[in-house]
Amino acid sequence: MPLDPQAAMRAAIAVPGVPRDRDGPVFREPWEAQAFAMTLALHQRGLFSWKEWADALAVQIKRAQAEGDPDTGETYYRHWLAALEKLIAEKGVTTPDALHRYRHAWDRACDRTPHGSPIELKPEDFA
């Protein structure tokens, strides 16, 4: 199955709350599109069903609301990202610790990369 706009449209219909227009999903910021695309790819690999994904997302949204999230739609993809991190850890793809280490490594890569050069992850970023 290709990772294409048709698949994206099906996902946007299958998962409640995905911001979209008549052609498919729309995004507020570039990272939202990245998070969406990764989820689509994992779904196509059979890591989870859309039902499973929708449940995982709903848990994150409920938790955020309990913590006072205004739920204006602006934070939808923040919940999406949190659900993705949690679900792939539950599936044994990675661990919260590994996610933390990689996040930190990217932060270091950023800090040592002068503006205008592509940011690349190097082994020393994990030191």
Partner: peptide
């Protein structure tokens, strides 16, 4: 998001 993409 970058961390996730790298791991995946």
């Amino acid at each position: 998001v970058r961390a996730l993409e790298t791991i995946l």
